[in-house]
Design a protein around this nucleic acid. Structure first.
Length: 612
DNA sequence: AAAAAAT
């Protein structure tokens, strides 16, 4: 990779730089068919927003000079994003290119996932905060001093006003507080933890000499962990947008991809590292990265990160490497679901944290219509095919809408994909036994509609933001109701509506009760046969209240149950009120405030008021 | 029991 090239507006006009331009072995001239033959006036819209001194002369060979990344138009690039020639000196590629072009092309938010947040549906989202000295929520991004560069990026992302989780989470983390937050990815969660991190990094550098770059070991100040490679990739893409031209460097590290490139990126210096656990540990053991400068730690899909499979790895990273202690670093945990058990584990990583829960935007609310059908195991394929045919018939121009089909096993995913293809459906599959390039290819061709059906294991159940998934089919229901919640959350994103269909078979009996309750909470019609199944399983046990659940919220601060004893200084540090920690049981403790959106103070009023 | 995550 050449290290120096000029800003491209100059490049196109200057002869010398023309040469330079051609000397680079890029693929500038490929433009996807649907973008060809555009007329000249539109070319100015291709400019980088901040370096747009150029004019209409910025076209080459009849159509706009576009970076090679344009081959990815309509896709959310699989991480790489290399080969971009249209950059300001020493600046990373402009991450806004794709979406800007799309919107300028008159392509609605169809393929642009920054655009279409339907804010109307956010208006009445219930929010609940608990903890001591909770900073007040804000109503606009302007109320917080995020800095000019970041504000510009927020504008470029077309974020007009903060989503509920952002209104609360951003002030909390700007204030330096630890946070446990229940909210879905589609609710603007990534921005909620990225903005304060980026703003904080920039602020800490005011008037300070920039840290030395290019050392052999990378010392990121922020670490964002997620449970799947694709999710890390997605967060990285988002974080790059938010940090564009802020001087804040973002890098990503995950398995399945060549490590060399990731190591090179780290050597170039990194402020925010987005990673999956395994690869991070690997890099740390190779002494490519040290965590001793970490000031911000964010765990996305935190409940998965702390479940049985992942917990040891997370503990190793957070507690047994060189990461600063809680209280010194700032820790933020995010997930759509937070079982008590997990909250208890997570509190090891936190210091005097605030618990925030945002009513679901999407999953298990009106935005997702949930159906459950009784289907014998052997009839499932036939049943799925009927659904898909109906979909195709009802869809516009007989087009298949994006349909995500969840199955239990990797083998099952492959065989169902195969079967669908044999029966004339364009399907792909994603699961952990496929190679990383295969996984990324599957996701791409699903997102852009080439294969509008994707069969997936739970690798795709969490956090992935795939715009326009119209239908989630639980071909095999998961064992855990929280997984169901995450899965159906792949549709009804960003305030849009979606459909979730579950195939319930004999074997799903243990899930019946939780499923029926969940659907009831979401005002969905519960078939009477399901209620009967639920009754039958009720004496057997099983969690009656999901996640210690409080209705439409994703979670409930387990500290308020008064179960947690002494150890946590949090409860005992208060001067007023009861003298012993035992007094903190049912009555609200003076330092432990619970606030619920704009609806008075008591939780009771919220739960009772019903959010419909 | 399954899935994910390092090579």
């Amino acid at each position: 990779m050449p290290g120096t090239w000029a800003d491209w507006p100059d490049t196109v006009t200057g002869t010398a730089s023309q040469t330079q331009l051609h000397s680079r072995p890029t693929r500038p001239s490929y433009v996807p068919p649907h973008l060809r033959n555009r007329t000249a006036p539109e070319t100015e819209n291709y400019l980088v927003p901040s370096s747009n001194e150029g004019s209409n002369s910025n076209s080459l060979g009849g159509f706009p000079l576009k970076h090679s990344g344009s081959r990815e138009i309509g896709l959310r690039g699989g991480g790489a994003g290399g080969g971009d020639r249209r950059r300001a000196p020493r600046e990373p590629p402009n991450p806004f290119d794709v979406s800007d072009q799309l919107s300028e092309m008159g392509v609605s938010e169809e393929n642009c996932d920054d655009g279409g947040i339907n804010f109307d549906t956010y208006e009445d989202i219930p929010v609940e905060v608990s903890g001591s000295d909770v900073p007040p929520a804000v109503n606009s991004f302007q109320e917080i001093d995020l800095g000019d560069a970041l504000n510009q990026n927020i504008r470029r992302c077309k974020y007009v006003k903060p989503t509920p989780v952002q209104r609360y989470a951003i002030p909390i983390s700007i204030a330096g507080r630890d946070l446990m937050a229940c909210a879905q990815t589609g609710s603007g969660k990534t921005a909620a933890f990225c903005f304060p991190i980026i703003a904080g990094i920039m602020k800490s550098r005011l008037g300070v000499q920039w840290p030395q770059r290019g050392g052999r070991i990378a010392y990121p100040v922020a670490l964002i962990l997620s449970p799947t490679r694709e999710l890390s990739c997605q967060i990285h893409e988002e974080a790059k947008k938010f940090s564009y031209q802020t001087g804040v460097k973002v890098a990503v590290a995950y398995g399945g991809a060549p490590i060399q490139r990731q190591m090179r990126d780290l050597e170039k210096g990194v402020d925010i590292l987005v990673a999956t656990p395994g690869r991070l540990v690997d890099l740390a053991e190779r002494s490519k990265v040290s965590l001793q400068m970490i000031k911000y730690l964010a765990l996305d899909e935190a409940d998965r990160m702390l479940d049985m499979g992942f917990e040891p790895q997370i503990r190793k990273i957070v507690e047994q490497m060189d990461m600063p202690q809680p209280g010194i670093r700032q820790t933020m945990l995010f997930s759509a679901t937070f079982p008590n058990e997990i909250q208890r584990l997570a509190s090891d990583f936190l210091s005097n944290y605030i618990f925030l829960t945002v009513g679901r935007v999407g999953s298990s609310t009106d935005l997702i219509a949930q159906r459950v059908e009784f289907v014998q195991e052997m009839d499932k394929r036939k049943h799925l095919m009927d659904l898909l045919y109906t979909e195709r018939a009802n869809g516009t121009n007989g087009k298949q809408v994006l349909t995500l089909v969840f199955v239990e096993t990797k083998r099952g995913a492959d065989s169902l994909e195969n079967w669908l293809c044999m029966n004339g459906f364009s399907a792909t599959a994603i699961h952990g036994d496929r190679t990383q390039p295969e996984r990324e290819q599957a996701l791409r061709s699903f997102k852009n509609g080439v294969t509008p059906i994707m069969v997936a294991t739970d690798v795709a159940s969490r956090g992935l933001d795939i715009p326009h998934v119209a239908h989630v089919v639980n071909f095999d229901l998961p064992k855990d109701i929280d997984d169901y919640v995450h899965r159906i959350g792949r549709t009804g994103r960003a305030g849009k509506t979606g459909l979730a269909t579950a195939f319930f078979s004999e074997g799903n009996q243990p899930l019946a009760k939780a499923l029926a309750e969940l659907m009831q909470e979401a005002n969905q019609e519960v078939p009477s046969w399901l209620s009967q199944y639920a009754e039958r399983s009720s004496y057997g046990g099983g969690r009656s209240r999901r996640s210690g659940g409080s209705g439409r919220f994703g979670g409930y601060d387990y500290r308020r149950d008064g179960f947690s004893s002494g150890g946590n200084s949090y409860y005992n540090s208060d001067a007023g009120g009861g003298s012993g920690s035992s007094s903190f049981t049912s009555t609200p403790y003076p330092s432990f405030n619970v606030q619920a959106s704009s609806y008075g103070n008591g939780l009771e009023s919220i739960v009772a008021s019903g959010w419909d």
